[in-house]
């Protein structure tokens, strides 16, 4: 084992002894100096998670969060120096983290917070002008064969818990009473420089899911009708336009 392998392994595991071959000019025990590095690594990674999962931290309290995040860090050190990617699978860890089992919605709240970080840093794309969108959509000739390009920051989440309401209850807005155990569908996007989070209906979720998968507008509408869904088409399109989520409307490519 090289000296740096031993050093790296001991950093992440507080039960491992301080590596051999270290010294300290004061004559102090190198262990007390090595502890600084150990603490820097663990606390900086835990802080990175705390920054990205603030509501998860509020739901379980700071001490519990730091202990949970510390165990995650030890099981999954970063694989890249790009720290905005770190903790992408934290929700999966939380889901199987036994001590958090009595907060069953915790993992989905983490998923919702992850989507917000992703939306914050997602690629830029210029939204289509609202009037132009209306014009194209109201032209009967093109309507049937359009593919709707949505902003790269836009993502959906389906949860058996009231994940948006739980998240919103930890923002500054006044809290409206809700049942955390009622299913909710979330839409996250970045509108200009702000990340926005909405609760949407199941029908809206399925319809936008189809659009994200590249299904044409007419096929997505047909599918929605077939599902007997609660989609309010005009309202949904109006919302997508007003939140600047539509970046292009392109004719469906006709295969040769």
């Amino acid at each position: 084992m090289s000296r740096y392998s031993e050093f790296a392994a001991a950093l992440l595991d507080p039960h491992k002894a301080c590596p051999q071959g270290l010294t300290c000019a004061t004559g102090a025990d190198p262990e007390s100096r090595f502890a600084v590095y150990r603490n820097n690594v663990l606390s900086s990674l835990i802080n990175a998670l705390a920054d990205n999962y603030p509501v998860v931290a509020q739901l379980v309290g700071e001490d519990f969060f730091r202990a949970m995040a510390g165990m995650y860090v030890q099981s999954a050190a970063p694989r890249s120096p790009v720290m905005s990617d770190y903790g992408a699978d934290f929700a999966g860890f939380i889901e199987h983290f036994e001590p958090a089992a009595n907060v069953p919605y915790l993992a989905d709240v983490a998923r919702l917070e992850r989507l917000q970080v992703q939306a914050w840093h997602a690629a830029d794309a210029r939204p289509m002008d609202a009037h132009q969108v209306m014009q194209v959509l109201s032209s009967p000739a093109s309507h049937d064969h359009l593919r709707v390009g949505l902003h790269p920051s836009l993502h959906l989440l389906q949860s058996p818990f009231a994940v948006v309401a739980i998240w919103a209850a930890h923002q500054q807005a006044p809290v409206v009473p809700f049942d955390p155990f009622s299913p909710q569908y979330a839409l996250v996007l970045r509108n200009d420089l702000e990340v926005e989070v909405f609760a949407i209906s199941p029908g809206t979720h399925d319809f936008i899911q189809d659009l994200l998968q590249g299904v044409s507008l007419s096929t997505a509408i047909d599918a929605s009708t077939g599902r007997d869904s609660d989609l309010e088409l005009e309202h949904t399109l109006a919302q997508l336009i007003s939140h600047r989520a539509i970046i292009h409307l392109l004719p469906e490519q006709v295969l040769p």
Binding site: S5, L12, Y37, V41, L45, A77, S80, P81
Partner: peptide, 17 residues
């Protein structure tokens, strides 16, 4: 300093021999 080892990134500036 070093901050990566193998596939791991340790997010700190670590000392060299």
């Amino acid at each position: 300093a070093w901050s990566s080892h193998g596939p791991m990134f340790l997010n700190d500036l670590l000392p060299l021999a």
